[in-house]
Each structure stands twice: as C-alpha cells, then as structure tokens.
C-alpha cells in the first residue's frame, strides 16, 4: 500500500435495504491530492459508493480502507478514529436539504467543529472565516428553509469546509444549480485542489468533467467499474459512454427534417457549446435527415 493512498476499495458489494443491488464488486483507489470523477447514469451506485468511502454505510462483502485503516463499523465506533476520520473527510450531499438540519446557517456551519471538539473561540473564528470565504456572511442568522438552492449549496459546502478536511466528497454538486452557481462551484473545486485537497466527485455532467477530475472512474448500470482513465480518454470513448447511458442517440425533428445525433445528458445547458467535450461529441453525430427545401 503506497503512502499516498487515501482510499482503497476492494471488491465491494452492497445491497440497499438488503434487497436492491447498489454496488456489485467495485474496486478502486484514491490517492492523496488527486481529483477523481465518478461517472455513471442515475441509479448506478455513485451515491452509495461515496457513502461507503465516507464510512457511512458498510459493504455487505469486500473491504474499504481509509488512510490505511479498514473502515468497519467497529473501527468507526472507536472515538479517536471516528473523530480523526470525520474531521479529515468532508462530504457534500446531493440533497442540501438533508444536509442543512440546524435552525440557522451559523448553527449549521458550527455543527461539525462542535461535534469534533473544537474550542469555542476557534469555532466562532472559523465559522466567520468560512462564511466570508463563500460569500454568505449575510445569511448567518437565516433559517435554511428560507434559502435558495444555490445559497443552500454554499452553506452545505461551508459546513463541510469549516473543519478543513483533507478529502472532499461531492455528490453531484452541480445538479439543479443555475449556470452561474455551477461555474462558481467548479472554480471552487479547482481552488480547493490547488490548496492540496483530495477530491472525489460523483457526476454525470460530462461538460465540466475536466475541471473536477484528473482521473475518471466509470460505473455501469450493472453497478461495477467498467473503465478508469483520464477524462479526455473517457470522453473520447463514445461507445463506452453510450453503453453506460451517459450519452444517448437521440432523434428529433427540425423544421427542415429529422436528424439523429448523440447528446451528453446536459445538452440543454446553455454553457455547453463553450466546452470542447460537447464539440467533440457532436463530431461523432451522424446526419440522417435531408433538407427538404
């Protein structure tokens, strides 16, 4: 095991509610300081895999270790290990609503440090700093349910960053955000990576893949790993993307005929045309319809 290894997952199987398969023999590793993108269609097990990495759910079969120690239920019941692990691993959930459970934004951001045993003055300082960093200082006394989707995401990230974790797990961070907030978030991820954080990001947003990942891990709809490689390589393998339902062949009617082409799942995003992946994909499209006039 190399010294830079953060997570090592070996042949992990997991069934949701002991019935529905979510992971079927997944193996991968994550090294310190790298950005890993977990790719896969809805329901392929990305979220579950992140929860396994975060030590929140435990596999039925196979092993997962974090920072060189196996993440079992017993290990995480050990107070010292649990504290050390929770402080080092930050998890931004897909649903901000689930993550923002405190009465106010300030309480929310203070929750992590409080439960990890930071002292009072330091908590105050850190909360103020991180609220300022994410530009949400004026929301401090608001209740989470009063916030917009973008504001909620900022608060969720603040509540994770406040403990200064080494590893950040993002579950579809850009889903349901407006383009401006998406760009802000992608910039933040780049910034955090530059600051030395390890980042694991589950996504099916191919357009922003190169910003969040140095290495991609593709999960199939059979809940196993089908490819690992740099984003350019993965995005170029259109057959793979189609097999994993990350792009689809799509037929639609224009005023002047029918044509068929492949889309990535976010083809409706206004920012897409600026990204090279999209152009790359479009070059693979095949024209079938013929102009009528």
């Amino acid at each position: 095991m190399s010294s830079t290894e953060v997570f090592a997952v070996a042949d992990v199987h997991y069934r949701y509610l002991e019935r529905f398969v979510a992971l079927a023999g997944v193996s991968l590793d994550v090294h310190a300081g790298e950005r890993v993108g977990l790719l896969g269609a809805n329901g392929c097990g990305k979220s579950t895999l992140l929860k396994v990495l975060a030590g929140l759910v435990h596999p039925d079969r196979g092993t997962v270790s974090g920072f060189g120690k196996e993440l079992t239920e017993a290990a995480l019941e050990d107070e010292q290990f649990a504290r050390g692990f929770r402080a080092r691993v930050g998890f931004v959930f897909q649903s901000s609503d689930a993550q923002l459970f405190s009465p106010t934004v300030r309480d929310e951001v203070a929750f992590g440090p409080l439960h990890l045993g930071f002292d009072g003055a330091e908590i105050e300082q850190r909360v103020d700093d991180v609220l300022a960093l994410l530009g949400i200082a004026e929301l401090a006394d608001r209740a989470p349910y009063q916030l917009s989707g973008g504001e909620k995401k900022r608060v969720a990230i603040a509540s994770v960053l406040v403990t200064n974790p080494d590893v950040l797990l993002f579950d579809e961070p850009t889903a349901a955000l407006d383009p401006r907030t998406q760009h802000w978030l992608l910039d933040l991820v780049v910034e955090l990576h530059r600051a030395g954080k390890t980042i694991v990001c589950a996504t099916h947003d191919l357009a922003s893949l190169d910003q969040v990942a140095d290495r991609c891990i593709v999960l199939s709809e059979n809940h196993d790993v089908v490819a690992i490689g740099p984003p350019q390589e993965i995005l170029a393998d259109v057959d793979l993307l189609e097999a994993t339902n990350l792009v689809h062949t799509h037929e639609h009617r224009h005023r002047n005929g029918i044509h068929t082409h492949r889309h990535d799942l976010d083809h409706h995003r206004p920012s897409i045309s600026a990204n090279w992946e999209a152009d790359e994909l479009r070059t693979h499209s095949t024209e079938r319809g013929t102009p009528t006039s």
């Binding site: 929860k51 975060a54 929140l56 759910v57 649990a82 504290r83 929770r86 402080a87 691993v89 930050g90 998890f91 959930f93 689930a98 993550q99 459970f101 929750f111 992590g112 439960h115 990890l116 509540s159 994770v160 403990t163």
Partner: peptide
C-alpha cells in the same frame, strides 16, 4: 448520515 459525516 449527514450528521454522522460531520462528527455526530
């Protein structure tokens, strides 16, 4: 899970 992830 969100609470546990942050040290609860």
């Amino acid at each position: 899970l969100a609470m546990v992830a942050r040290g609860y």
